Computed example of a mutant assay.
Amino acid sequence: MLTFTSKQDFCAWLSQFQHPNLTPDWAAAPGLVTVAASGQFKIELPFAAHSVVQELKAWIAEQQASGQVAGFAYDVVVKPKAMQTKVANPIKGVKNVIAVTSAKGGVGKSTTAANLALAIAACGAKVGLLDADIYGPSVPMMFAQLNAKPQVRDNKWMQPVMAHGIATQSIGYLVDQSDATIWRGPMASKALAQLLNETEWPDLDYLVIDMPPGTGDIQLTLAQQIPVTGAVIVTTPQDLALADARKGAAMFDKVEVPVVGLVENMSYHICSHCGGKEHIFGVGGAQTLASEYGLSLLAQVPLHLHVREDIDAGKPTVVARPDSEHSAIYLDLAERICASLYWHGSAKPDPISFTVVD
């Protein structure tokens, strides 16, 4: 029966637990395991991780029940770390920024961004969602907040609209739904900067930004002036969508924003009557693109009537049908993205606190 005489021994044993979102020697990462004066081990997972927490607890319980290790006290918590970015300007209260982009409209980017944000929250993190589509905001409808108006503190700081447990902000909250936003590129970029920096975000582990389609002024503003931790490109298997996704990948490469990977949305259709699969938009396109650019294919999300119905009802699938196949896909996607940001990036040092003694 194993007993642990040091933290190093414990970490070496703990690293025997393996998961697709962990590295081989994951427990040895700085600050991940600490030992209290009482001898209790504390395991802090530095990214949003629901399945890792559940499976790790089950593994430890099994090891203890089988008598392979002596009993010990421990706790597992999710405590996402802030990661280093090329742009140094921090957003107050925000640790990490995930840009969800498509370079082409009509591929389900906003639906993906909404469900991704909710899935990250379900994985144990504090999350916000910024609707950066100045010309066609979707968040107010997707979250059933068509009549919401942000409160303003001190005539400057807009308060985000809370919906389904996450903080949201959108130009759609500020402009009447029947009005058209007719702005040139620089004006739209300025509006995005104001929405981002003049919103009083609560302490967030992740801010998901639903980008407008394309590779124009707003996208460049985001990439060059905002500390984006990583970008996720949404496409469909269709050749036309993939051609534009290539432009998006090339743009982020030029401005040195890391692309976490691709999401192939509408990967196939699930018949609501027989459950059969039809590859309406083609097969294998996103995998080919991922291989071409050395990216990960993060998820293949099927097209289903329920996803559209849930969004139109203002309750995205992750909260409307938490036990569904689609919710499982989004939860896995969320954890893969957050894990990739941590393992492939560099964590910022924790802020130093001082105690003033009179």
Results as ranks from 00 to 15, higher is better:
Lys79His: 11
Pro80Arg: 12
Lys81Pro: 00
Lys81Thr: 07
Ala82Trp: 05
Met83Gln: 09
Met83Trp: 00
Thr85Met: 09
Lys86Pro: 01
Lys86Glu: 09
Val87Met: 08
Asn89Gln: 14
Ile91Val: 11
Val94Trp: 05
Val94Arg: 13
Val94Tyr: 03
Asn96Gly: 00
Asn96Ser: 03
Ile98Tyr: 04
Ile98Glu: 07
Val100Glu: 10
Thr101Met: 14
Thr101Pro: 15
Ala103Arg: 08
Gly105Tyr: 06
Gly105Ala: 06
Gly106Met: 09
Gly108Trp: 14
Lys109Val: 01
Ser110Gln: 03
Thr112Val: 13
Thr112Gln: 11
Ala113Pro: 05
Ala113Tyr: 00
Leu116Pro: 07
Ala117Ile: 06
Ala117Arg: 05
Ala117Asn: 10
Ala117Asp: 12
Leu118Asn: 03
Leu118Asp: 02
Ala121Met: 14
Ala121Tyr: 06
Ala122Ile: 08
Cys123Thr: 08
Cys123His: 11
Gly124Tyr: 12
Ala125Met: 02
Lys126Arg: 14
Gly128Lys: 15
Leu129Tyr: 02
Leu129Pro: 01
Asp131Thr: 07
Ala132Ser: 04
Ala132Arg: 09
Gly136Pro: 06
Ser138Leu: 07
Ser138Asn: 10
Ser138Cys: 04
Ser138Ala: 06
Val139Arg: 04
Val139Leu: 04
Gln145Gly: 02
Gln145Phe: 06
Gln145Asp: 04
Leu146Lys: 14
Leu146Ile: 15
Leu146Tyr: 09
Asn147Thr: 15
Lys149Leu: 05
Val152Trp: 09
Val152Met: 13
Arg153Pro: 11
Arg153Ala: 14
Arg153Thr: 14
Asn155Gly: 07
Lys156Tyr: 11
Lys156Val: 10
Trp157Ile: 12
Trp157Arg: 14
Met158Cys: 08
Gln159His: 14
Ala163Cys: 03
Gly165Gln: 05
Ile166Trp: 01
Thr168Gly: 01
Thr168Cys: 08
Gln169Glu: 12
Gln169Ser: 15
Ser170Tyr: 00
Gly172Asp: 07
Gly172Glu: 09
Tyr173Thr: 10
Val175Phe: 03
Val175Ser: 09
Gln177Val: 11
Asp179Glu: 15
Ala180Ile: 02
Thr181Glu: 11
Thr181Ser: 14
Ile182Asp: 10
Ile182Glu: 11
Trp183Ser: 06
Gly185Ala: 10
Pro186Gly: 10
Ala188Leu: 05
Lys190Thr: 15
Lys190Pro: 15
Leu192Asp: 13
Ala193Pro: 02
Ala193Glu: 13
Ala193Lys: 13
Gln194Gly: 04
Gln194Val: 05
Gln194His: 11
Leu195Asp: 12
Leu196Ala: 03
Leu196Gln: 01
Asn197His: 12
Asn197Asp: 14
Glu198Trp: 12
Thr199His: 08
Glu200Met: 12
Leu204Met: 04
Leu204Glu: 01
Asp205Lys: 02
